[in-house]
Amino acid sequence: MTWIDAVIQGILLGGLYALFACGLSLMFGVMRIINLAHGDLALLATFMVLVISQHLGLSPFAALVIVLPGAAVVGYALQYAMFNPSLRGGELSPLLATFGLSVVIGNMLLEVFSPDTHSLSAGALTTASWHITSQISISALSAVIFGAAVLVLGGLQLLLSYTQLGRAMRATADDARTAELVGINAKRVYAIATAIALATAALAGTFFGMRSSFDPTLGPSQLIFAFEAVVIGGLGSLWGTLVGGILLGVAQTVGAQAFGAEWAIVSGNVLFLLVLAFRSQGIFAAREAHQ
């Protein structure tokens, strides 16, 4: 029974990883940018939620009403101010630009908030849980996070498949220059993609802050989990990213169950390396080969 519990907890944890990862996946899919600042931007949003909820006495969920649109605006502006110009400098420039941004945000958070740990209170959700058997219980917060992850990733997939904006994104991802020639403003499409990516990152960061304590140094580790989820699932496929996040979560919890808690991260990394070694295109590689 403890094994079943480990798998269930892993699936729920995986939902959070997938939520972290979907913005990374979207930005890579649409404009081939690997955003190394993704984890730090998510953490920045977490701290914004913390500040707003403390100063205005709001619950973190209420603070999201301000922080999610704020994150989208920051993403839109960041794309125009920083990422679009960097795309002109070849493949390495965006990587270096986002790496620099990551360092700046990480150190800024450290400067302002000191290395102390903080946490967000999800209120009654934090302690509520369903006891399915004596050994298996599902926390309400984990279930809410997982549900939100499925909704967000499913919603993004529907957006890409069936909306005008989604078709413009796919066309731009396919060939930005040709997209311009059918009337698509590629820079604007990129900015919208980054706006969506940062809003999802802010949501993931907030859930992360409700689930566990956090400090300004955790951005890079969140980036690694998100990156692993994207790679395991296969680049460019959002359903793949969801499955990748879940597999990573299960690998961590089952690894912890088998070998002890300190093996959780290692087990996840081993799965990541196995996928890289034997199926480097990921488990659900996007069918469209990108040139």
């Binding site: 413009a168 796919r170 066309a171 059918v182 009337g183 698509i184 069918r287």
Partner: peptide, 19 residues
Amino acid sequence: RPFGGMTVFENILVAATMG
């Protein structure tokens, strides 16, 4: 230079809506 990952109709629809 078709948008290879999209259907023929989607290729044209994206042009009609955006362009």
